[in-house]
Design a protein around this nucleic acid. Structure first.
Lengths: 359, 359
DNA sequence: CTGAAAGCGCTAACAA
DNA sequence: TTGTTAGCGCTTTCAG
C-alpha cells in the first residue's frame, strides 16, 4: 500500500459542532458571519474550526441555496493572448465576489458551445459569460434564453434582445485605422476576415469602409473573407495576390488590414512566401494585439482591445442580473487603442516592385 | 419585470419518478444505465425524462459519491500558447472520462497557488493537475501531500517522491540545441533564464552546457538569470551586452539560447534596441515555440514542447491514481522537437560589427 | 440566542 | 426487480 495517495475523511460541520459543544446550525451561523451568536459560543466554534482545520464544503453549501456560487465562462479557444487574458480577468473578478469561475473552451465549435452550456446549466451556475464562436444568434444563446439562464455575451457580438453584451468598439477602431492608412497615402487596401464572425466582421468592415470612402471617395477597398476556418484564407489570399501580380504593375494593394489575429499571421506568412517586407513592399495592420508584435522587425501595427474593460463590464452586468437587476439589455462598446507601428508606411516610399523574392 | 432573466425550477429526480410511476431509486438506476430494471419501467422513465427535459444534477449526484467527478488544473498563467493548449487538452481528456475540468491560474504566485489548491480541496476534486510556478517542492505540493490529495505535477518539475511528474525533456532538447549551435560554429553563447524555475533551468542549463563543452571544450558559455520576474532580465541583459561592447570587438556572444518564452521576447526586444538583426548580428534559439515564430522575418528557432504527450500522460497517470493505482511515483520526460529556423546562422557570415544601429 | 427538523437532489444498502 | 430508508454536508426556518 505504499505510495497510495490516501483520501482521509475531512471534518464536517458536525465534527465542529460536537467539539464546540453547540449545534451544527450554530456553527453554520458563525461561519456565515451572523452576529447574533453569543461571543463565547462563537469563540468555541472558532477554536474547534482551528483545531480541526475545518472548511465549509462550498458545493454542499450551495446545494441548499437557490443559486450556486459558480460562474461559467465559455471561450472559443484558450490558445490566444486575448482569451487567455480574458479568462484570467474573469477569474479574478468572480473570486472577488466569492464565486468560482469554471471556464470551458468551445474550440470554435457551435455544437460544442451548446453542449458546454447544457453542462453549465446542469451545474446550476449562477451566471454565464459567453464569448460565442459566431455571434449572438447562435444555438447557445438560444439555449440560455429558453432555459432562463442569466448571462452576458462578449466579444463577437454587437447587441442582443435578451442579454447584455460587451465588446470592443470594432467600428470606431476600424475607422481610426482607415484614417491612419489614408493619412499615410494608401488608396488601395485589402481587408481580410472570417465571414463566420458575421456581426463583428460587418462592424469592422463597415467602420473601415465608411470612413475610408468618406476621406478618399476614389479609393479601392478589396475584401477577402474565408467562410469559417482560417486555412482556406491562406489559399484565397494567395489567389488574390496572384491575380494582382497578373495585371499591370501597381495593381496590388499597398496595405492590408486584417480583421482578426489569425488573419494577421496568415498575411505575414503570405508576405514571407512572396518575399515582401513591411512596410516597404506592403503595409499591415491587424485587429488584436499580441506581445510579440512589438519585438519583431518590423513591429506590427495593431488594434489593442481593452480586455480589462470588457471583462470588468461583463462581470458588472452579470452580477447586476444575478442580483435581480432588471431593465432592458444593454449593449456596451469599449474603445480600442490603435497602435501604428513600423509595419505601416507610406506607399511609394519603398521599392514596392513586382514582388521579386529579394531573399 | 420585463427582461428579468428568470430561473425556473428544474425538474428533479422525483418529478421524473412520479411521472413514470416508479421510485426515485429506479430512476437513478435507469440514468446510471443499470440493466436490471424491467424494460417496461425503463421506457416509462425515458419517456418522463424526455417529456420533462430532465438531466441529473452532477453536483448533487457527486454529494453522495466518495469522490466528485471534477479534476482541478492549476496553471501559472493562461496567456501563453503553451498553457492555453495544455488546458484545452486536459479539458478534452477529462471530459472523455466523464469528468469536468476546473482550471485556475496561479498568476505566477506560489501563495495564490496554495490558495487555489485549498479551494480545490474544499471542492473535493478527484484529482489535480498542477503546473507549479516554481518547482515540485513548493507549498502547493506540500499541501497536496499533507492532505492526501491525489495529483500529478507537470511542466516545471523533474521528479517527486510523492507525485507522478510529466514534463518536457529539457535536458535532451538543450543538448540538441547545443549540438546545432556548435555545429554552426558558435563558440561563445549566452544562455538566459529565470532562476526561480530551479529544476527546469538547471536541467536545461546542464543539458546544454554538458553537451556543448563535450563538443567544444574551449567554448565560452555565459549565463544571465533573473531571479523571479521577467522585467529585471531586461536590465540585466542590457548590462551584459553593454559590458561586451565595452571590451575589444568580438567579445560578444554569437548566439543566445533563451530557456523560456518570455526570455525570447526580451532578447528580441534587446536586439531591436541595439539594431542587431538575426542571424547576421547574432543568432537566437528559444525554449518553447509559438505560432508567430514561423511567420516573422527571420523565423525564430525554437524548442517545441510536446503539449499533447504531456497532457495525455499526465491524465493517464492521474486517473490511474484516482482509480486506486499503486506503486512508486513515476517521472516522465517527453521528447521535444528542435526547430532550427532562420534566426540561427553561422558566426562570421554577417557583419557582426560593433553593434552600430543600422536603422 | 440556540437547536431540532426539514430538506437541496441524488445514490447506495437493504429489504421486500 | 423495486421501493424504502438513510444519508452526503450544509443551510434555514421556526419554535423554544
Amino acid at each position: 500500500m505504499a505510495h497510495r495517495q490516501g483520501q482521509q475523511r475531512r471534518p464536517s460541520i458536525h465534527d465542529v459542532a460536537s467539539r464546540a459543544g453547540v449545534s451544527a446550525a450554530t456553527v453554520s451561523k458563525v461561519m456565515a458571519g451572523v452576529t447574533t451568536v453569543k461571543p463565547e459560543n462563537a469563540q468555541r466554534v472558532f477554536d474547534a474550526v482551528e483545531h480541526l482545520g475545518y472548511r465549509v464544503d462550498p458545493l454542499a453549501s450551495d446545494m441548499r441555496r437557490a443559486k450556486r456560487r459558480i460562474i461559467g465562462a465559455i471561450m472559443p479557444e484558450f490558445e490566444s493572448e486575448f482569451f487567455g487574458q480574458m479568462v484570467t480577468q474573469l477569474e479574478s473578478l468572480a473570486e472577488q465576489r466569492g464565486y468560482t469561475l469554471v471556464a470551458a473552451s468551445s474550440r470554435e465549435s457551435e455544437a460544442r458551445e451548446k453542449e458546454i452550456l447544457e453542462r453549465m446549466h446542469d451545474w446550476r451556475v449562477a451566471g454565464v459569460v459567453l464569448a460565442p464562436v459566431r455571434n449572438e444568434h447562435g444555438p447557445a444563446a438560444e439555449f440560455m434564453k429558453a432555459n432562463g439562464m442569466t448571462g452576458v455575451l462578449i466579444d463577437r457580438v454587437l447587441s442582443d434582445d435578451a442579454f447584455d453584451t460587451v465588446s470592443a468598439d470594432s467600428a470606431a477602431a476600424s475607422a481610426e485605422v482607415a484614417r491612419e492608412l489614408i493619412g499615410k497615402g494608401h488608396r488601395h487596401i485589402l481587408v481580410i476576415g472570417l465571414g463566420e464572425q458575421a456581426a463583428t466582421v460587418r462592424a469592422r468592415l463597415d467602420g473601415f469602409r465608411g470612413t475610408a470612402l468618406a476621406l478618399a471617395p476614389d479609393m479601392r477597398i478589396d475584401v477577402v473573407l474565408a467562410e469559417s476556418t482560417v486555412e482556406p484564407l491562406r489559399a484565397q489570399l494567395r489567389d488574390y495576390f496572384d491575380k494582382c501580380e497578373g495585371k499591370a504593375g501597381g495593381q496590388r494593394p499597398t496595405a492590408v488590414y486584417s480583421l482578426f489575429l489569425k488573419g494577421t499571421l496568415v498575411a505575414l506568412s503570405e508576405f514571407r512566401r512572396r518575399g515582401w517586407h513591411c512596410p516597404n513592399d506592403i503595409s499591415l495592420v491587424g485587429f488584436d494585439d499580441a506581445e510579440w508584435m512589438q519585438v519583431t522587425w518590423p513591429a506590427i501595427a495593431a488594434v489593442v482591445q481593452p480586455v480589462h474593460q470588457i471583462a470588468g463590464h461583463a462581470m458588472e452586468a452579470l452580477f447586476a442580473r444575478i442580483e435581480g437587476g432588471d431593465g432592458p439589455p444593454r449593449a456596451r462598446l469599449e474603445p480600442c487603442q490603435v497602435l501604428m507601428r513600423e509595419s505601416v508606411g507610406s506607399p511609394g516610399n519603398g521599392p514596392h516592385s513586382g514582388g521579386g523574392n529579394r531573399q
